[in-house]
Simulated assay, not measured.
Amino acid sequence: MKTSAHFMSGTMMSKALLTTLLFLTFLNGNAQTEVTKNVIVDAAGWKRVATLDASAGRGYNEMVLFTRGGATTPRIVKISWFKGWSNYGGLNIVSLSNGGLWSKARITYDGTQSYLEVNFTKDIPVLSVYQNQSVWSGGEIIGGTLPDGGGNVVVSAKVGRVNYGEDSFFLGYNGNAGIGTTSPDAKLAVNGVIHSKEVKVDLNGWSDFVFKEDYNLPTLEEVEQHIKEKGHLKDIPNTKEVKENGIHLGEMDAKLLQKIEELMLYTIEQEKRIKKLETELANLKQSEK
């Protein structure tokens, strides 16, 4: 009985020891997956931030670059990258700052090694670079003073508030969003075709002023003269202006409606004249009988 109890006690102690060792191993291995290095950016320009696994750089990971301290910090940007065996890859960028110390990111290949590079806008005495390998795999942060970038560019993307799919969708620091463009000049700028079932445009006014009694309707002679001199209708942009500036849908619809309403007034006036002439002609024929 004592022997059995002694045997069971030893077995339980062995299991407990094994469990403890496994747990410590897990903690140790998991801790090693998170790496933060403080590096130096000695000047503005392209710098290599990380080497990518093997010569081809195959893998995927996330790097977080951030600064600490000072009235205008932190500045932080997260770069998610993917690199295949050959020269293809992808970049997604998210910046949590209103402006930054970096303008672009890219993956390069110098014939031997692949790199994640960042284009810095100024020198940074202390830059922290964070990497978590617990979910992602691939890449190693370069320590010390970051070396200059270079080599063949595999893929690149501009840094803004958000940049998904290498400039496919871009949200700038000013709040303007671009699809197919990284220089959106409005709240939404699209470089391509928009397919929609319906578009609603809010306007402050419409063209019904044409029907007011005090509206100065130009004569058809004046319209003809303007066309001869300018080559387009009055208040309508010419070809050169449209090519340079495009058109505003709401404004253009209002102007086109103005011309349609003017045409309607001309038509009504012509109808009155035609009926008057028909009446005069009928009276003339009646008087000749």
Rank of each mutant, 00 (worst) to 15 (best):
S55Y: 06
E244C: 09
Y215K: 01
S156N: 11
G175E: 00
S114L: 07
L257S: 04
L257M: 11
E198M: 07
P147Q: 05
S134V: 09
N238T: 08
Q131P: 05
A43G: 10
K230H: 14
E271W: 00
A177W: 00
N216K: 15
F211L: 08
V155P: 06
Y109Q: 07
M12A: 12
Q270S: 08
L27F: 13
M252W: 10
E198A: 10
G175A: 02
I107Q: 04
K200P: 00
N245P: 04
G144K: 03
M63W: 03
V154Y: 03
L263H: 06
I141N: 09
F82D: 07
E224A: 09
T121M: 02
L52A: 09
V135K: 15
L203T: 13
G70M: 11
K104T: 04
W206F: 13
R161V: 01
K122E: 15
E140C: 02
E34T: 14
W102I: 08
P184E: 00
G45S: 11
I179P: 00
V162Y: 07
L256K: 01
V210Y: 04
L22Q: 11
I268C: 03
V39C: 09
V155D: 08
G246D: 09
K243Y: 13
M63E: 13
P147A: 06
D214F: 03
V199C: 01
T239A: 13
G151M: 03
E261T: 00
P218C: 09
V162F: 07
Y266R: 02
L188F: 01
S14V: 13
